[in-house]
Design a protein around this nucleic acid. Structure first.
Lengths: 145, 145
DNA sequence: CTCCGATTCGAGATCGGGTATCATTCGGAG
DNA sequence: CTCCGAATGATACCCGATCTCGAATCGGAG
């Protein structure tokens, strides 16, 4: 197994077993380069006749999300998708056509959250910012939708 | 029908029929004062022996969301919930204990989005910011969780 | 007020993402 | 190499949400 991927290393350094099915799921995710749904991975696995069980794929996604190598985002449609990402606090910009996403840093949001906390009296524990649009490639190629 | 509620007026002014089941759903929502799930409304309706069909409740929610009187938010758990709200662009702060929510204005987010667009090259069409925490009441009452 | 067509409803089937169960297999520490 | 708990996979199941379709309702025209 040359060239252990980032996802594989993340699993290992989290002290979880690096099993064949998990490697396979990691490979599927790497092959995707963008946000994907659980159903996408299930379809990919079936298409490649990997003998990966449906439940295993969901469990692998759950695991990767737990260790912070994956994050669930909520599409404007209400569907769930997942994006691979690093451990630091950040947010995502997702292309609504090709699903490629980039991470962006905090960008002053923490300060904004504090501001909101002060104004509303709420204690803010958690926030989520998601941005959707067209990536540079899709802007060029497609109609400006 | 004295005292037409905001939700009912929203339906009417959108040119949609103001039917009895829709009024009933609007009343259920008004009685809730906070974020709720579709399942909550279904349970409420059953509890009150309103003869409202399941599908009708979902359709009413969909309608209210379409006309902007309701907005779907995505809880950190991945579940969907809905909050009644006005038509202007805004975001929500939701109490994770009692589900009461307050709207907050744009607060410079549009500018932030423009900034992000410039940095990433994406064309940002849509963004969503959701904040979760404890409302003032729940801060006082409960343990500081 | 009455009538009529379009809209909306209600009941139930169905769909699809996600989870639970459980016997079997596997990773990897020792 | 052995061994045991973690992980797997097949399957059944759960539940939120949607689809279908005949029946009931709404509300504007007359």
């Amino acid at each position: 197994m040359p060239d252990p991927t980032l996802l594989e290393m993340a699993i290992e350094s989290a002290g979880r077993r690096l099993t064949r099915p998990r490697r396979a799921v990691a490979a599927l995710i790497d092959a995707r380069d963008g946000a994907f749904s659980a159903a996408d991975l299930v379809a990919d696995a079936r298409g490649q006749r990997l003998g990966i069980g449906r439940a295993t794929i969901f469990r692998a996604i759950e695991l990767l999300a737990e260790i912070g190598a994956l994050e669930r985002i909520d599409l404007p449609t209400g569907d769930h998708a997942y994006v691979p990402c690093g451990p630091a606090h950040h947010h995502h910009v997702v292309c609504r056509r090709c699903s490629r996403s980039v991470e962006i840093g905090d960008l002053g949001l923490a300060a904004l959250a504090r501001d909101i906390a002060r104004k509303t009296g709420y204690r803010i524990d958690e926030h989520r910012l998601e941005l959707f649009g067209l990536c540079p490639d899709c802007r060029r190629v497609g109609a400006p939708a």
